[in-house]
Structure formats: C-alpha cells, structure tokens
Simulated scan of single mutants.
Amino acid sequence: MQLLARALAQTVPAGDIAREEKDLHALWLMASGAAHIDHPIEEPTDPDLAVGARAILAMRVEWESPTMVEIGERRLLRRHVTSALQDIGYQDAAIYRHDGSAGSTVALAPTRERPSLTAATFLASVDFEHRRRTEKMRFMAHLTHSVGSSTQAGVEVEQAVAELESFCASPLIEPHWPKGAEMPMHSRDRPVSAIVHGMDADQISSFWGGWELVQVALRPGFSSVNFWLREHAETPF
C-alpha cells in the first residue's frame, strides 16, 4: 500500500508524497484497530524526489543568435517545444509556458517520473527535431525543490523561472555554453548546446552524451554554483 500511495501521489501536480503516506497510514491503523505504529514509514531514497518536497523543473530552449533566425524558424521552435512536451507527457500539464521571439521557457511539476529523466527526454526530443538544421540552438534545465505550502506554489514557479532566465542571460555563464558546431555528432546532425543546473552526477547520467561539471561564481564573495555542460551529444537517432 505504501508503494501504491507513492505512485498515485506522484501523478498529482504538486502532490505531497509524505502527507499522503501519513494520511493513508493513519486510516490503515484505524481500520486495523492498531494503537501505535510498530514500524515507522521508511523514507524514499530516490535522489530526485525528496520527501514532502515539490520539484519544479524549468527549461528554456532558445536561439543562439535570434536576430539571424527567420520568422518561420521561430514558429518552428515553438512547435518543437510543444512536441517535446508531448513526448514527456506534459503537453497540457505545464505549470508555466512563455514563447518569446528568442525562445521558449516552460516549467513543470515533474511528478510522473524522475525529474532528471523528464529533462533528459525533453532535451533528446529537441535534439531530434533540430537535427540537420544549420541554426544554432541552446537548452538549459534548472531543477529546484521546495517544501513550502501549496499557497506559495505560484511564487515558487515564478522564482524558478526567474532563476533559469538569469542563468541563461548571465555574462559569466555565456563563455561556458558549448558550441554546437564543435561537438562531434553524426555528419549531418547539429546538436543543441546544453547546460543543466540543480542535478548531481547520478541524475545527469539520465542524459545522452558526455557532460562536464563546471563551477561558476555568479556573485563576488558567494560560493560557486555547479553547472553541467554537455561536451558531446552522440544521440542514437
């Protein structure tokens, strides 16, 4: 029943797994007539999903040189993002989406599978759609966890999106963007430059290609922030 409760709670956007387990356990005890808990509920060990935390996955796909991209390609990028959302099962479940002239930003509450797998599949879909095109494109994923109440969800989503877009626009991160033309791929394919934040080495293993950890000091006097850069993208298309 505990495994079933976790599986069902993960299908609900912003679902609180720990609370659902606790409520179900209390009902179980009442039904069985037990007076106390003999065996405490074990904590889930998945590094992507902390107990009681809501994961917010913000992702942005944008043109490297938007002023050089024709209007038809801009519209095509929006369709690519829609297709990628469909591939990960979130076509109508994105909690935030904005399509701008330079790119698209989306945010999800990835409760249906591991957030790292969701982001990796989204990126693979964008890679697939963008293959054999000459324009350079880049992608960034930003994963955060929150233990706040549901009333703060909107604020937390806006904060996650703002953090993601500040990363994308940071002049300190700009030199670290991989250059698509320099990454080895199949002869007619062009990979999407990609950076991921908020995930560790175990989580980044969900992504295709080779990844390098870099540390960037975004503010003077503050500790460095870890980012993963995709060095190459030998995806099996």
Rank of each mutant, 00 (worst) to 15 (best):
R6W: 01
V69A: 12
R75I: 02
C168F: 00
I95T: 12
R188P: 00
A9D: 09
A93D: 12
H142C: 14
A18W: 02
R131G: 05
L108M: 12
G103M: 03
A181D: 13
L76T: 15
Q159R: 15
H197K: 15
A9Y: 02
D38Y: 02
I41N: 09
L24V: 09
P184F: 02
F139G: 01
R190K: 14
L117H: 09
A162G: 06
E42M: 12
A31M: 13
E113C: 11
G221T: 10
S206Y: 04
E64M: 08
L108W: 04
E156W: 05
E73L: 08
I37L: 09
S170E: 10
R75A: 11
Q203Y: 01
A194L: 02
R79C: 06
R190E: 03
T151Y: 09
E158L: 11
Q215L: 13
E113D: 14
S116Y: 01
A5K: 02
L77W: 00
W28A: 13
W63S: 09
S193K: 01
H36V: 11
A233I: 01
S83L: 13
T82I: 07
V214Y: 01
H25K: 13
G72M: 08
A50D: 10
H176D: 09
G209F: 01
I41P: 00
S146C: 12
P110K: 09
Q10N: 15
G72R: 12
W63E: 03
A31D: 07
S166R: 14
L29F: 01
P191S: 11
E165K: 08
M199Y: 04
A53T: 02
P191C: 05
V61D: 03
P44W: 00
T82V: 11
A84R: 04
F128V: 01
L3A: 14
E165A: 05
P40G: 10
S149H: 09
D48F: 01
R112I: 10
V155H: 08
A26R: 13
A55Y: 00
R78Q: 14
D200S: 15
D87K: 10
S125F: 01
A34P: 02
L143E: 02
H176N: 12
Y96N: 08
L213D: 12
M30G: 09
D200T: 14
A201C: 07
V51D: 10
R74E: 02
S104Q: 03
D202E: 14
S205R: 14
R74G: 06
R190W: 00
H98Q: 15
L164F: 01
A169E: 11
A55H: 03
A84D: 06
E70D: 15
E231F: 00
